[in-house]
């Protein structure tokens, strides 16, 4: 049965499908990156400039997206806020990858109790979500961008360990690794030369997906006041500040809300697209 159906499945013609997730996700992420870079050189106004005369202005030619309760320009704040979002995401994902990838590879390569120990510790860490960790860090060290980044990063480690471990275990079963082990190569060179290069695609996908989660966590933390402190603009805090004007100026919530949702959507799509790109067979499975 399977023999007869083999060629029917996905391999028809072998042509690569157009990958809309990758395209749209990549575009959104690139757009945010460009906006963040541009904000270093130019924003319509100083994002922190308070203008008591122009408070709560509606969108107009002078202020495209209007102003907030202090008269600060919304668009400028959004632009500068994208820096916070990207910075926190980058550092958090970096922390998670730098710790999680080696741990994952280690757990994949060692049998017995050491691997078991890593996985148990990993499961335990899952009981401490990013928000909880960040609040704890905030309680101890005082909330800041750093506590947010580190907390999100630590909370993201388990997902990296899991994904890299299962990918690494597959690599360990391949014949070239068996051959290398049979030839007496030490574990460390095998990890560097064989396992790591073969899980790079997994790392990329996981980084993109984790980035989306980090953006969500950062927004939630800023919303609660446990993220980047004022006056540095951040999308989550803009949303929080908008809450008292839900009746009078709902747009104050809509713009930063949209920014957060679009950013998360972008990174999620990018992750999905990358997954399809690396492993087209799985396109229907995600």
């Amino acid at each position: 049965m399977s023999a007869d159906l083999g060629p029917v499945g996905h391999a028809v013609g072998g042509r690569r499908r157009w990958n809309p997730s990758l395209l749209v996700g990549g575009f959104i992420v690139a757009l945010i990156a460009v906006v963040a870079l541009v904000s270093f050189v130019w924003t319509p106004y100083d994002a922190t400039l308070v203008d008591p005369a122009g408070r709560l202005a509606s969108p107009s030619w002078t202020h495209w997206l209007g102003t907030d309760k202090f008269g600060r320009d919304i668009l400028s704040q959004l632009m500068v806020g994208s820096r916070t979002t990207l910075f926190v995401g980058l550092v958090a994902v970096g922390v998670a990858a730098v710790i999680g990838v080696p741990l994952g590879i280690f757990a994949a390569m060692t049998r017995r109790w050491s691997s078991e120990l890593v996985m148990r510790a990993n499961d335990l860490l899952l009981a401490f979500p990013a928000l909880l960790l960040a609040i704890m860090f905030g309680a101890v060290f005082g909330a800041s961008t750093t506590t947010a980044m580190v907390a999100i990063g630590i909370a993201t480690i388990p997902s990296f360990v899991r994904v890299i471990r299962s990918g690494g275990m597959q690599v360990m079963r391949t014949e070239y690794v068996l051959a290398a082990r049979a030839a007496g190569r030490r574990p460390f060179p095998i990890a560097i030369r064989h396992v790591l290069p073969n899980v790079v695609s997994l790392i990329t996908v996981q980084a993109s997906v984790s980035f989306a989660i980090a953006v969500l966590a950062e927004a939630a933390l800023s919303f609660l006041g446990y993220g980047t402190p004022p006056p540095t603009p951040s999308w989550g805090r803009m949303l929080q500040e908008s809450q008292e004007f839900l009746f009078s100026a709902p747009r104050l919530a809509v713009f930063p809300g949209l920014a957060i949702a679009v950013a998360v959507l972008g990174f999620n799509l990018l992750g999905d697209g990358l997954r399809d790109h690396f492993d087209p067979k799985l396109e229907d499975r995600r």
């Binding site: 049965m1 023999a3 007869d4 159906l5 083999g6 060629p7």
Partner: peptide, 11 residues
């Protein structure tokens, strides 16, 4: 042989 279409015929 496999690939001759006999399983597909059955299905």
């Amino acid at each position: 042989e496999s690939g001759s279409g006999k399983s597909l015929t059955a299905l």
